[in-house]
Amino acid sequence: MVATGTWITQPVAFTSYQVTLGRIALVGLVALGLTAVILMGELDLSVASTLAVAGVVMASIDNLALGIIAALVVGLLIGAANAFLVVVVGINSFIATLGMLFLLRGLAFVISDEEPVRLSNIDAGISFGKPLIGEFTPRILLFIFTFIVMHLFLTRVRVGREFYAVGGNRQAARDAGIPVRRRIFTGFMISGLVAAGSGVINALERTAADPTAGSTVLLSSFAAAIVGGILLNGGRGSVFGTLLGATSLGILQVALTLSVVQVDVQNIIIGSVLFIAVISDPNSIRAVSGSVRSFLRGGSVLSKPSVDPKEATNNG
């Protein structure tokens, strides 16, 4: 499905590969960080706000280097806070990071006084948007760099490989002596750090940090990770899949923009892609085929009473 979509749209998007690459890089970077968390069967919805907070923090500190460091530290702290809620308190990661998404969005507004913060060092921002090597802007180079690091981390480093074990079967991982809690902490901190990094890049390129940044990134980055074939239950997936997902989505987006499709329609299309991707993973297919089989075998006895009250409310 992904391949088909890519092939159909490629001719249009190919002519402007620079724009396409830039688009892929921002969404893809966030999605790469998410990969680490989703591999373990958890979810980090707070990435969108982390991006905004990191950008605002960086822009409100005058010294650029200090600002970047502060933003990245904030990202790590947010990741640690998420992991604390999930691991120590024991809240489901969907709800914990949802609360954080909201809290951090508020924080971004509070720090920035509800207005975009201008970067004090605009020159750095402008030079950041220019191609560094050949056609590649620093943003794309950073994306490629992160991709390689994440790939090596998840396939060559023991800690990274244990992510798969934690996601595949947590109890088995614990029995095998893997420090599951520490791995989850690491995963969330990677996700927070990468999201903060994307926030820094975003703010640098625009030479201003917008507290509302990242609201569309949420949808796209999840779509990228899930289209890329990562199982939400954890244990399966690779950064290559995420790269493929981000690439096909980025190309799709740019192709839609080039063919003058409104933003609203783009949202409809990307939302549909995410919807189809999430209901067509192997677990879902198995669930559906199972229920079809049991339906053919003659339905269930208790299904009838559950219909009546529902219809009653519909009428009333």
Binding site: L43, L45, F94, I268, G271, L274
Partner: peptide, 15 residues
């Protein structure tokens, strides 16, 4: 389809 409700409703929100 036993899909995750957060992701499903996120996508239907955007659609």
């Amino acid at each position: 389809f036993k899909a995750n409700a957060v992701i499903v409703t996120l996508s239907t929100t955007f659609i």
